[in-house]
């Protein structure tokens, strides 16, 4: 196992050596995960791309950690020479998520940043073209944020086709028949309410 992860460990050492504050781990073969301070993402990706040869940007993803009041950006870059992928993660303040753009590194980042701006409200400083990408004239909280209520939005925006009002809830039907009174603390555990 040690031998197999040789390349990954070399990359890990190099990253650790250059960015002391980075938390680096190897989740599995061909993957190196790095958790970074926000201000380091720019130099870090520059280092990966120009020095370590991570030329291919696979993906930028965003995760909203509502409970922790943070928005996580996940950059996945790949080195075609040693076939290792680095997953770099930073966490932005959810109230005011801001980070300088990375447009100059990979041209296609423009699209990713436009989408993340639109869907999560992350401001990419210096991007210059954070216009609508998929949505049009969207107002209100960015829709991919966890506190955006899809069901509420759908109810306000669309209507139900009539004819299904006679639907019954199974658990309620049973309690009506038996006279069972479900206490409030128990109701949250009804798996019937998956949504």
């Amino acid at each position: 196992m040690e031998v197999k992860l040789q390349v990954e460990n070399e990359i890990l050492d190099k990253i650790k050596h250059t960015f002391h504050s980075a938390e680096v781990s190897i989740p599995r073969k061909q993957r190196v995960e790095v958790k970074l301070r926000n201000d380091l993402i720019h130099p870090f990706l520059a280092y990966l791309k120009d020095t370590l040869g991570f030329k291919h940007l696979s993906h930028i993803s965003t995760v909203d950690w509502l409970e922790e009041n943070e928005i996580e950006l996940v950059y996945i870059v790949m080195n075609y020479d040693n076939l290792v992928e680095v997953i770099a993660k930073i966490r932005l303040d959810r109230e005011k998520p801001e980070i300088p753009t990375l447009r100059e590194f990979w041209p296609q980042i423009e699209t990713y940043e436009r989408e993340i701006h639109e869907m999560y409200g992350v401001n990419f400083l210096g991007h210059g073209n954070l216009t609508d990408f998929i949505l049009e004239d969207w107002e209100g909280i960015p829709p991919m944020r966890r506190d955006f209520d899809t069901v509420k939005y759908a109810k306000e925006t669309y209507f139900n086709r009539p004819g299904r009002e006679d639907a019954q809830d199974v658990r309620t039907t049973i309690t009506k028949k038996s006279g069972e009174e479900i206490p409030e603390l128990a109701k949250v555990y009804s798996v019937r309410h998956l949504e």
Binding site: S178, S190, R192
Partner: peptide, 17 residues
Amino acid sequence: GCGICTDNCPVHMHIPE
């Protein structure tokens, strides 16, 4: 979690919950 069982329980305990 269907709750069908609760009908047969004399006490109607909140079984699925």
